[in-house]
Each structure stands twice: as C-alpha cells, then as structure tokens.
Design a protein around this nucleic acid. Structure first.
Length: 762
DNA sequence: GACCTGCTGCGGGCTG
C-alpha cells in the first residue's frame, strides 16, 4: 500500500497493482491530481511498459487516458535512468501542432517534478528553442512527422547523437497515419531511425479508431507484427442517443417557371434545396441553442451556408450569436476564438465544422454532435461521436440530417434508391457493432518513394542505388516495390529533363539541379500536395483563405467565416482579396476529392434494402424514405438481378461493392470498348444489355490486366511528386492504389448469375 | 463527388 505524501489534500487515489509500481514522484503527481482511480487501460499498460520492450498499440476511446497510460510508466523508467543528457529519452510524434501544444501542457508540469525536460518541436516553435534542444538533447521530444523529416534532411549526421538514448517512440492518432501518404512517410522515418541507431526503437501507437488490429500491427512493425501487443480498453457501455432525420427536397413541377426571389433578397433561396436547408437549420437552431455542440456539415461550402443561416436565426430571434464556422480556410485567430469559447464553456457555443474538429485537440465536452449528410466513413463517424458525452453519466447524442429528392416519375434510379439515407443507416449499424474501415495496404506509393529517395540522399550526403533499395524497400515501407520498378524510378529521377538525382563516377547518387531546388525549399518536408490560395482581408485583418481555383471578381458577394461580404478588389500578385460587409452572399466552392466507400459498407447497404424492419432511430420522414427506397429496390428487381436497362441504350450495373471495386469494373468494361462510368454504387454503361452481358461473360473468365485498365484512367497525377514520374510508372502506381482486378471475375459472375448472397463477412 | 495535416534559414529592422 502507498500512503499519500504528507500535506496532500487531494482525494486519495485507490492503489492498484499498476499504481504501486510507478516511480514515487509519478505516484505523488497522481495523488495531487485528485484522481480516484487509474483507468483500466492505464492499469494494464503499466506492467507491460515497465517490464518489457515490446511494441504496443493502445486502443481506447477519445479522452480514455491513453497518453497517461503510456507516459506514466515511461516516465517512471526515465526517473531511474542512469545517463541523463545523452539524447532524447522518449519521442512523441503527433500529427497536429495543436495536439503537440496540448500534450506539452499536460506533460510539462508532471515532468518538472521529475526534472525531465520536455521539448516541443514544430513549425511554430522558435529557432532558439530548437537550437537549445539540439545542443542538449534530453528528456521528451514532442515532434511532427515533417519536423522529424527536416531533422533527417538538415541534421542527418546528428541523428545518432540526438536519438542515441531513445528507448521509446509514441505515435499518437495512429489511425490518421496508416496507409495515407503521411503515414507511409512516418513509417519510412521510423525505419531510418532504427537503421541509423543500429537497433529497433520500441514503438507505441495510440488510437481510438482502428478497424483491423492485425493490419495495425503490421503497420506499426512490418518486420515483426506478431510481437506487437494490442491493449484494447473494455468498453464502458456508454449510452448513445441517436436520431436520423429525413428532409425532402422538392423537385419543381414546372421547370419553365422562374422561382420568385426571396423576400430578404436572399439569392440562394431560389432553389428547392434551400427549403430543405432552411428546415434543417431551423431544427438545429431550436435544439442546439443555449448549449455546446458540434455540427459536422460535410464540406466547407456547406459549413459556410449553415453557419450563415444559424447566425441569422439568432439575429431574427434578437439574441447574441452562438453559432460559428470552423474549417481549415478560416484564420487561426478565428479558429482559436471558436475553440476557446467551446472549451471555456461559460457561454453557449456551437461550431459548424469540417473534420478540423474531428481529431485529438481538447475542446472539452460537448453536449451533442450533429452530422449533415451521410458520413464519409464509419471511422470518422466514430471519431466525431467521441466528441460528445465525455462527462461521466452523460449520454453521447448524435443527430444525422439526410436530404433526399421527393419522388417523381422521371426520377433517376439512384435518387429513387435513397442512397444517402441507406448509407447513413448502414454506417450507424456498423458503428454500433464496433466496426470501422481497415487500411488497404497494397499501394506502391511511388510519389512518397521519390521524396524519400531525395531525403535519404540528403541525410547521408549521397547514397548508392543498392543502399537506397535496402533502406526504403527491403526494410522500409515501400516493400511492394520490386527491384526493377525501383530501378525504373531511379532512372526516371536521373533523366536530364527531370534532374532530381545524378550519378557520379563511383556510382554514388547525389541530388541533381532540380533535386537540390526541391530539398532546399522548406516546402520539401511535407509529402502531401497543397493548393495555391488567396488571402481574404477585411480592413487589414485576415479572415482566412480561398483557393485560387474559385473565380472571384470585384462586386461579387460571398459568405465567408459565417458572414456576408462584397469583394472590393482582387490582387493577383500578393494574392489577396479585399472584402467589406454586405447583406448578400453565396458560399464559395472550395473543391476537394470524393471519398471511397468500403466493400463492407456497401454490402451492409444491400442488407438494409433487403430487410423489412425500420430502425427505431428514424424520424417519420426518414421512415418514409426507407420504405420508398425498399419499394424501388423490389420494383426494379434488384433483389434478384443487379443488371437494369435504362432506356434502350443504357445499362446500369449495381455490383454492390465499394468504390475501388466499382471503379475497377467500370474501367474493365471501358477497356473492352463499352464506355462505362462509375456513379456511386452503380456503373452506367452506354451499351445495350446483351452486349454488356457478353462482356461480363468474358470478364468472368479472366481478371483483366491492371496496366491495361490504368491506361484508360483519367487522372493519374494525384500526389505531390507524381509530376516527376513518367506514364508507365504513373500507371503502375495507379493500378496498385486504385484497382482491385482480382475482384473482377467474381463481380462479373455475380452480376450474370444474379447471385445475391451477402458479402457482409468481415 | 470531402475533409485534413506541415515547413527552415537568413537577413533586415527594431528595442533595450
């Protein structure tokens, strides 16, 4: 048993097996926090971290105490270290600067007790603080993947000194860093760290939403996934209150008549969709006013429109505004203001936001979460839901608002199937079951490979082709790249018109002219692509940014930051847009890419169509939509056959697979001369049914050649370093990332035989 | 037909 330190008036922590094993100053800190007990996950993590050196994944809900679960025992080990000051003892990698600042605040006072320094290292940290950390590396380093990259490029020779003492590297929000470019980047850096130190450094991943633990293990330690220990928190059965609300968008009966302008001169009330938007905003205003909430609106354009409507609803009610827009194009000042107001909790506040408020940063507990439109992924829905009901005894509240077109004789089959509502129901089902999307690990990631080739050359002051292959492909995350493909990438990088690298007489590869320009520019350290933007300025104050792809001219009116503006001037040189307040405005388009639906989600959607029950969480309109969707499903015979004829010359296929497989099927048909376009769940083929059936018959026999399909693809350049690759390499990269040719024969067979067995086996 | 994330070195001007 442990007694509280004398003088402490904090509530006594309940001693437990884990607690008793922590170092004395760490226990003292816990007493002072007034904690009554350690979380289950913390208690279980302590012996694992103290007694072993195995890699570890800790999966627990947002605010489940994951950070403390790893840092309390890790710091207990440091407290008894024998050689302080010979390098950073621990490294924490966080995907957001704001997250690092949050964690710094939490760790700093604990570490002060232990005389363990904590260093922040990201783009907003002063050069002086970084210089001090470099001169005397010790304690804990909190860093972003990009700043770690910068250390390799600029201080390659110092890596063994800086990290010589490091015995653990904690990766926060692991789910956000799986098979995306940034995750591959970080895995490459971790592998390069192990190689530079000539020993593996223990890796500890933290996450609330991992879809597949075996894949997560393989991502954390590709060389030895079996030894990665997974610690999952036992769910505490929190109450979830859920509602799905349907809203009808009326299709104009008489398309010839001009709609009457709205009384307040509101230009966006002229379309029928605006009536549904008004109804949604009206409900949000009614149920959210006076409390603290998050409204995920789906796109930045929709955030602006909804925030504007809710602000005006406050004006109409003559109460102070409590609804604020929050997305990545709004200024840091404005975002900070919204986050502070949510966090302080003194006045009511609702943020209408995009995924900016989905990850990690602490905005305190909110009472409810709303989602407008179906979610993009189950993982993101779970992450969003985790923002509400974080106080003990409080339920998590989720409201989903779904718009569907009202029924009409000429309605398109996909509208009549009410895909948005059915997608929302399928995702809520899967959320409740605890499923979420796993990563797809087969992509080659050639763009990121180009980046890492340059980075390793910079780190080491030159490298051989053999050495690069060893670091990046044999032991690193580019394991899908074979020697021939790797050689083709290097050859391409060395071509005179590309000039990223050049070879000197002894075979060493050095940066070429263009390569030097890349490496020397500070934009090099991030592997993801970004778009050019205007600054939006009012009276010398920056409100935020707009993509240059959005056409802006003087006198046009826009909604931005939830308010209405007139454009005074556009300066292409700086590039800046000057605005002044106005009574009118439309939300701008920000652009963006579509997301992929996973096979499991689509399989579940088909189950929803085939069932008869109505989930209790549907409101009357949503219930009606679901009945209509099922009626369409049966009337069109989709229960028995997934081949439909629309008019004489168009055939619609519904393969009931995710986006990648559906797009692969469309390309496979296009490649054999039948022009096919993927459209949501369906593939629209401009050919009569008998021809389509004949083509499917051939596809059922043999999987198509992926490179032949990639040759038919429209956009091959998707990532930052793609412009340096040639067409054959781009096609190979596309085939690896965006095609599943092996699934084509099964899809074709199922379509032809009307085999409607559910694929929903996970 | 979506979202998000990140960044160094150096020089000039100012303050104490």
């Amino acid at each position: 048993m442990t007694s509280p330190p004398s003088g402490s008036e904090a509530a006594a922590a309940v001693p437990s097996a884990g607690f008793d094993r922590l170092a004395e100053p760490v226990r003292r800190w816990i007493w002072d926090q007034g904690w009554r007990a350690l979380h289950d996950i913390q208690d279980r993590a302590i012996p694992l971290i103290l007694d072993g050196d195995d890699d570890l994944i800790i999966a627990a809900a947002t605010a489940g105490g994951k950070t403390e679960a790893v840092f309390l025992p890790l710091l207990s080990r440091i407290a008894t270290r024998d050689r302080p000051g010979s390098g950073f003892d621990l490294v924490y990698v966080g995907p957001l600067k704001a997250l690092i600042d949050d964690q710094f605040g939490r760790l700093d006072q604990l570490c002060e007790r232990l005389a363990v320094p904590v260093h922040r290292w990201h783009g907003d940290v002063s050069a002086g603080a970084k210089a001090r950390a470099r001169k005397d590396p010790d304690g804990i380093l909190l860093i972003t993947p990009e700043s770690l990259e910068a250390l390799f490029v600029l201080r390659g020779a110092e890596i063994p000194t800086l990290f010589g003492a490091t015995h653990g590297i904690v990766i926060d929000e692991l789910h956000a860093l799986l098979d995306v470019e940034r995750g591959i980047h970080l895995r490459s850096l971790l592998n390069r760290l192990d190689l530079a130190l000539r020993r593996p450094v223990r890796r500890i991943g933290l996450s609330a939403t991992l879809g597949d633990m075996d894949l997560a293990r393989a991502y954390l330690r590709p060389a030895d996934p079996a030894r990665v220990i997974v610690l999952e928190s036992r769910a505490e059965g929190q109450e979830l209150r859920l509602q799905v609300r349907g809203y009808a968008v009326r299709v104009p009966r008489d398309p010839g008549s001009e709609p009457a302008p709205d009384a307040d001169g509101d230009p966006d009330t002229d379309d029928e969709e605006a009536a549904a938007d008004r109804a949604i905003a009206g409900h949000l205003a009614k149920v959210l006013r006076g409390s603290r909430n998050l409204v995920f609106a789906g796109s930045r354009q929709s955030v602006e429109a909804v925030a504007d409507r809710l602000r005006r609803s406050c004006e109409d009610a003559q109460v102070p505004n409590e609804f604020f827009a929050h997305h990545a194009n709004l200024s840091r000042d404005h975002r900070g203001f919204v986050e502070d107001r949510l966090k302080r909790g003194e006045t009511p506040a609702t943020a209408v936001c995009t995924s900016t408020l989905e990850l990690g940063i602490d905005i305190g507990a909110v009472e409810s979460v709303a989602q407008i439109g179906p979610p993009f992924t189950v993982a993101s829905l779970r992450q969003r839901l985790g923002r509400s009901g974080r106080r003990a005894g409080q339920p998590a509240i989720l409201r989903l608002y779904i718009k569907e077109k009202s029924q009409d004789a000429n309605q398109h089959i996909l509208d009549a199937l009410r895909v948005g509502l059915v997608q929302a129901i399928a995702m809520v089902d899967l959320l409740i079951e605890g499923w979420c999307e796993p990563p797809r690990p087969q992509a080659l990631h050639l763009s990121t490979l180009v980046h890492q080739v340059l980075s390793v050359i910079a780190e080491r002051g030159g490298a051989t082709a053999r050495g690069l292959f060893h670091v990046l492909c044999r032991t690193g995350p580019f394991s899908g790249v074979d020697p021939a493909t790797f050689a083709a990438v290097l050859r391409r990088m060395g071509e005179p018109d590309v000039a990223l690298i050049e070879q000197v007489s002894d075979g060493t590869l050095l940066p070429g002219k263009a390569g030097e320009r890349q490496i020397e520019h500070y934009g090099f350290y991030a592997v993801f692509r970004t778009e050019a933007e205007y600054r939006v300025v009012r009276d010398g104050q920056t409100l935020g940014t707009l993509p240059v792809s959005f056409p802006v001219v003087p006198e046009m009116t826009i909604i931005f930051s939830g308010r209405r503006w007139r454009v005074l001037d556009v300066d292409e040189k700086t590039p800046t847009i000057l605005v002044a307040p106005d009574a009118r405005g439309r939300p701008p388009r920000f652009g963006g890419d579509a997301s992929d639906l996973h096979d499991t989600v689509v399989a579940r959607m088909r189950d929803v169509y085939r069932r008869d029950d109505h989930p209790a969480y549907l409101d009357p309109t949503a219930r009606r939509f679901l009945s209509e969707a099922r009626a369409t499903f049966r009337r069109r015979g989709l229960a028995a056959s997934s081949i439909l004829t629309e008019g004489g010359d168009e055939t619609v296929l519904v393969p009931w697979r995710g986006t990648v497989a559906t797009e692969t099927l469309a390309l496979a048909l296009t490649a054999v001369g039948l022009p096919a376009t993927p459209w949501g769940l369906a593939v629209m083929v401009r050919a009569p049914e008998d021809k389509v059936r004949a083509a499917l018959g051939a596809l059922a026999e043999r999987a198509p050649d992926p490179l032949a399909l990639a040759a038919c693809a429209r956009t091959l350049m998707r990532e930052k370093f793609h412009p340096f690759l040639d067409r054959p390499l781009l096609e190979r990269d596309y085939a690896s990332a965006r095609l599943t040719v092996a699934a084509v024969p099964d899809m074709a067979t199922a379509l032809l035989t009307g085999d409607t067995r559910s694929e929903d086996r996970r």
